[in-house]
């Protein structure tokens, strides 16, 4: 099996890094994601290593890293599935004290837990850190952070740390 041919059959947007033996499939349409993921799974990629986001000023790239335990030929290959979504404009609100609150809405992408159940915890982590809502995830709750972090999305580049307020002044 020639992995390059098989992967280029699945998607025409294949980026190959020869030096580092890395493969990356770029998904341009969200509706194609689950179909592409299913055909990758049929090739033999059977588990998710990591789900994460990369934050850019106007967009977020969501990356699933998948690998294989069952296929002898694919064990040494790292495959990344990457999908980029546009970020909605942040909403600025001024409250009664005159503070400006910036509300940064989350983005939505399809979840791949139905294809690879091993991504269930990683997708929860990407949700709380980047504000990526995985549509179709069975249990999308906060994993590590407290619930009152909702809306801050700590790993986005525009996150600012709010110092705890002093109780006794």
């Amino acid at each position: 099996m020639n992995i390059k041919d098989e992967l280029s059959k699945i998607s025409t947007n294949l980026v190959i890094d020869e030096k580092r033996a890395n493969y990356k499939i770029i998904i341009d349409e969200p509706s194609k994601l689950i179909d592409v993921a299913n055909s990758i799974k049929n090739l033999g990629f059977d588990h998710v290593v990591s789900v994460t986001g990369v934050d850019y000023p106007d967009k977020i790239e969501v990356i699933w890293h998948v690998s294989s335990y069952s296929s002898e030929e694919l064990k040494g290959i790292d495959l990344a599935i990457s999908m980029t979504v546009k970020k909605p404009e942040p909403l600025k609100q001024t409250d009664a004290q005159g503070n400006i609150n910036v509300n940064r809405p989350p983005v939505t992408v399809p979840s791949l837990v139905s294809v690879w159940p091993s991504g269930i915890f990683s997708e929860r982590e990407a949700f709380e850190m980047f504000g990526i809502i995985f549509d179709g995830h069975p249990d999308l709750r906060y994993l590590m952070l407290p619930e009152d972090f909702y809306g801050t999305w700590p790993l986005r580049k525009d996150f600012t740390y709010q110092k705890p307020k002093v109780f006794i002044e």
Partner: peptide, 12 residues
């Protein structure tokens, strides 16, 4: 199940 759940290392 170990393959499906993606566990690692000596446990796998």
């Amino acid at each position: 199940d170990a393959i499906r759940l993606g566990v690692v290392g000596p446990n796998l």
